[in-house]
């Protein structure tokens, strides 16, 4: 309302009709410093991260220039003979990771379902703590466990698998499993046993993601399934699993990424061998990360460059897998509600 005593509005002050005004936020100096520095830190983190890939990539250039595409096809890793290639270790990395996933994901899913669907309330919080503890235990301790406790028992299992399922190529072993005195050392330090040990690291990660997703299942759908079926498995099958599909896939992919990068457990258990082998029960194998960790100490600068190139390949693979996992989780119905 303008009256005689009301101040006249200046031209600039008069708001334009129908359009929203831009508001100048007069930030104080301390606020501008605050905003600027926190943004700066964020970008710094971004830069450091990017530079990891960049540096590894830069270091790889001489190697690629020298060996060319044969870097990917050569299986030997003998720097002194100028034969370097990651074909064997790449296959080994994937094999160990796959064994870890095949063993670990069903176990993780069962554990997640147990926690969300079957466990009584008091047990539930203990189980969640147990899973978190499992994730906190360092891999060096799982390596000790894997070598000294798991392996002596698992080699019998490996032998049994090659006895009865040896007609499947991956389970074949070069020595005779049916011999009265069987060659025990042929079944140790294998991809199989290493994979089982790596699964210990993979299970808590996948379980946490899946559990978070299963917990989010809408109560209404659960009740509908319960009223129709009366069984817990009916509810799981009809509602929980379809709803949690994004979390299951995403969690498995995250687990895969972890398994691909696992270093110490592999270093401690597997016995290095550089050929493409699909017989997972047999001794011998190698993964990229164990290759780097193992050969690091006595590497010349040229060999170092080769190791870094292998590291770069690992970086690209794990980054790709993890991006894929994050996308799947985010896009799915359950993922929209979850933070991984």
């Amino acid at each position: 309302m303008s009256g005689a005593g009301a101040p006249q509005l200046l031209e600039e002050d008069r708001p334009t009709r129908g359009k929203p005004r831009t508001i100048e936020r007069g930030l104080s100096r301390s606020d501008r410093v605050f905003r600027g520095s926190s943004t700066g830190v964020g970008i710094f983190v971004l830069v450091v991260t990017g530079s990891i890939g960049l540096f590894l990539g830069l270091q790889s250039i001489p190697t690629f220039r020298h060996y060319g595409f044969s870097f990917f096809t050569q299986t030997n890793w003998q720097p002194e003979r100028d034969q370097i290639g990651i074909a064997a270790v790449l296959v080994g990395t994937v094999e160990v990771a796959l064994v870890a996933i095949c063993v670990g994901i069903p176990l993780a899913m069962s554990l997640a379902l147990f926690i969300t669907e079957y466990a009584p309330r008091k047990l539930k919080s203990w189980m969640v703590s147990a899973v978190d503890l499992m994730a906190a235990v360092p891999s060096i301790l799982y390596g000790l466990w894997g070598f000294f406790l798991l392996q002596p028992h698992a080699k019998y299992l490996a032998r049994w698998l090659s006895q009865y399922l040896g007609w499947i190529p991956i389970f074949k072993v070069s020595t005779d499993p049916n011999a009265a005195v069987w060659q025990q050392s042929a079944y140790t330090s294998s991809v199989f046993i290493t994979g089982i040990a790596v699964s210990m690291m993979v299970i808590p990660l996948a379980c946490a993601v899946m559990r978070g997703v299963f917990d989010e299942t809408p109560m209404g759908e659960r009740e509908a399934a319960l009223a129709l079926s009366g069984t817990r498995f009916g509810v799981i099958r009809t509602v929980v699993l379809p709803f949690g599909r994004g979390g299951i896939i995403g969690g498995s992919m995250l687990a895969l990424g972890r398994a691909l990068g696992e270093t110490i457990v592999v270093l401690m258990i597997i016995s290095p061998a550089y050929d493409i082998k699909i017989r997972i029960l047999e001794a011998g194998g190698q993964t990229i990360s164990a290759l780097i960790a193992g050969n690091f100490g006595n590497a010349t600068s040229a060999q170092l460059s080769a190791l870094l190139t292998a590291g770069f390949v690992l970086f690209v693979i794990t980054l790709g897998v993890n991006f894929f996992a994050a996308t799947v989780i985010r896009k799915s119905r359950s993922g929209a509600l979850t933070e991984i």
């Binding site: 983190v45 971004l46 991260t49 990017g50 990891i52 590894l56 995250l254 990424g257 972890r258 691909l260 990068g261 696992e262 270093t263 990360s289 780097i292 960790a293 590291g311 690992l314 970086f315 794990t318 980054l319 993890n322 991006f323 994050a326 991984i340």
Partner: peptide, 12 residues
Amino acid sequence: VVEAMTALPEIL
């Protein structure tokens, strides 16, 4: 990027 970095293998 931060989320991707939580999954970086320690050896890298």
